[in-house]
Amino acid sequence: MKRAEIGRLSARARLFLLILPPLTALAALCVGRIPLAPVEVLRSVAAHLGAGYELNANTEQVLWSMRFPRILLALLTGAGLAVSGCAFQSLFSNPLATPDTLGVASGSCFGAALAILIGWGILGVQALALVFGVVALGLSWLAGRGRGRGMNTIILAGIMIGSLFTALVSLVKFVADTESQLPAITYWLMGSLNSASYTTLAMGAPLILIGLVIVYLLRWRLNILPLPEDEARTSGVSLRGLRIVTILCATAMTAACVSMCGQVGWVGLLVPHICRMRFGSNHLSLVPASVSLGAAFMVVVDTLARTLTAASIPISVLTAIIGAPFFILLLRRSGGWEL
């Protein structure tokens, strides 16, 4: 390794990570109940970019109203969840931290369940999920903060707030109408990208994009987070500021993801660790790798979810079924990892 490249990705890795998500997305555009030839898809893409091809109206409908928003949503949530998982693990120097460590996902789930119970539409569900995600973070922060208390206190507070909201979700399910509301809530909680549309995206995507951009820009600085407290404080960067920005970005991304497609487990734990094993713990390469692999992984899983059976399989089920064995395989081959 040349010294000038400390912590940077090799050119080959960079190229691979750059073309992986678009390629996966392109492949996913072809697959579905109406299979489309790659040529057809490429033609349509080119036409949208200004080339003059003749297009089939049906194909257009399938591609751009149904598949494309869904794939876009998968790309965004995959990247968002992976990066926020990665940020939380470094923030808490804890390899088991996930986007839900501060109770954000549980809070969002409660918000969504509550909205379904009240009978609000999809946008209402999304909005309330966002609101309660932020509320959960606020409660964890209030419960865990204080002078001289470490990040561990905040983790514990987060776990407590998380279980509080999980209990509240159960309460909502208990009082929900068993004919219509309960299945809706249960199905929503298992996670699905069925609701993908440009309107859903309009509310959630900006939050994920803002979070991604900020974390990406700060990526070298994130290396300070896992250091012991005094070492981090003497680095010349405001540790408090860096922590707050990281928590806010990770929370915004998680809440936005959950609000759009329900609880998608595993991605936030799995993808960052795969990246750590493969590319090392330097965030200079870890963050871009998580964005790329997270996005690609989610597109693959969602494509399987909508094509394997007639009714689409809940996404959480698939992330675990695909993710767990793959993860264990990698873990055994790489001889473990540390944080």
Partner: peptide
């Protein structure tokens, strides 16, 4: 007390943070 996840060069480079 040091975090051991980085390579020696990555670790030393972190010393440049204030620069």
């Amino acid at each position: 007390a040091a975090a051991a996840i980085y390579t020696t060069e990555e670790m030393i480079l972190l010393g440049r943070s204030s620069r």
